[in-house]
């Protein structure tokens, strides 16, 4: 199987997404807590919400990247898996937003 070589590329991409997402998120959270300490409550709320949303978005970004990679490699199994995952997520949003 040549899959091993190709998965290395995905591993690299996933690594980047995870690392940068966490950096961005934790920066916003630190700023948020600092603002809270100096009693800028509404600004703190915005910064902390932004930080938490970035964090929550990391897995979605990872799944989308994996889908693109699976399509590129014509990997049927992972294409199916990631498509189902994104569909279930879409379903959750659809049911909650009604």
């Amino acid at each position: 199987m040549t899959n091993d070589d190709n998965l290395e590329r995905l591993e690299r991409h996933v690594g980047h997404i995870l690392r940068n997402g966490v950096r961005l998120s934790s920066t916003a959270l630190v700023i948020g807590l600092a603002l809270l300490a100096v009693r800028q409550d509404s600004l703190a709320g915005i910064a902390m919400t932004a930080g938490l949303l970035v964090l929550t978005a990391i897995p979605v970004t990872r799944i989308v990247t994996s889908l693109v990679d699976a399509l590129r490699r014509r990997d049927k199994l992972l294409t199916l898996a990631t498509t189902v995952e994104l569909s279930v997520l879409a379903l959750l949003f659809l049911m909650r937003s009604r």
């Binding site: 998120s25 934790s26 959270l29 807590l33 703190a44 902390m48 930080g51 938490l52």
Partner: peptide
Amino acid sequence: LGLAAAAVLGVL
């Protein structure tokens, strides 16, 4: 929010 931010940074 405040607790979530603190927990996340601690966990990191």
